[in-house]
Simulated scan of single mutants.
Amino acid sequence: MPWYVRGYLVLINLISFGAFVYDKIRALRDEWRIPERRLHFLTIGGGVFGSGMGMFLAKHKVSKPVFYVMLILGFFTFLGIMKVTDVHPDRAASQTTDTKNERPNKSEKHSRSIDKHLPRHPVER
């Protein structure tokens, strides 16, 4: 998985966790709240683990079934992101087009150095 996808997933989970905890604090103080639609967006946008932890650690929005549905949808979104950005070795090898800049492995290096020192004999027919 590319570094920027990992960074996005970490960031969206931290933001969604903070949003749920912040909304709980605001609810206890009877102050302005984060709209539920925004919390749903954070959950479905890949922040399923942060949202889930924020829900259960802060005991916030746990009585609303729609938030459980959003957690499930967010989990599938997370799995989709993981699947789309997953690079398997066989796919990575087929995507490589420039072979000139690749470094040879140790056995190739060794065989090349031995070949340099062997005398060249003419081929007998």
Rank of each mutant, 00 (worst) to 15 (best):
M1K: 04
M1A: 09
P2A: 01
P2D: 01
Y4F: 13
Y4S: 11
Y4N: 08
G7F: 04
G7S: 06
L9Y: 05
V10S: 08
L11I: 14
L11R: 09
I12M: 00
I12K: 00
N13G: 06
I15A: 13
I15W: 07
F17H: 03
F17W: 04
F20C: 05
F20P: 02
V21L: 03
V21Y: 04
Y22H: 14
Y22R: 12
K24P: 01
R26P: 05
R26Q: 13
R29L: 10
R29T: 06
R29C: 05
R29P: 03
D30V: 11
D30P: 11
R33Q: 08
R33K: 09
I34K: 07
I34Q: 03
P35N: 05
P35F: 06
R37T: 14
R37M: 15
F41W: 14
L42Y: 03
L42N: 03
L42K: 02
T43N: 06
G45I: 00
G46D: 00
V48Q: 02
V48N: 03
V48P: 02
F49D: 02
G50A: 04
G50F: 00
S51H: 01
M53A: 13
G54K: 01
M55S: 00
F56P: 07
L57V: 13
A58L: 00
K59G: 11
H60P: 09
V62K: 08
S63Y: 09
V66E: 09
F67W: 01
V69N: 01
V69S: 08
M70L: 10
L73D: 07
L73A: 10
L73C: 15
F75D: 07
F76P: 06
F78S: 02
F78I: 09
L79G: 02
L79R: 08
L79N: 07
K83G: 04
V84G: 05
T85F: 10
V87D: 14
V87N: 06
V87S: 12
H88W: 15
A92C: 04
Q95W: 10
Q95F: 10
Q95I: 11
D98E: 05
T99N: 12
T99G: 05
K100T: 14
K100R: 13
K100I: 12
N101T: 14
N101L: 11
P104V: 03
P104G: 00
N105A: 12
K106Y: 15
E108A: 10
K109Y: 15
H110D: 12
H110Y: 13
H110N: 14
S111R: 11
S113C: 01
I114G: 09
I114E: 10
K116E: 04
K116I: 09
H117T: 12
H117Y: 10
L118A: 09
P119T: 07
R120T: 14
E124P: 10
E124N: 12
E124W: 15
R125N: 14
R125L: 13
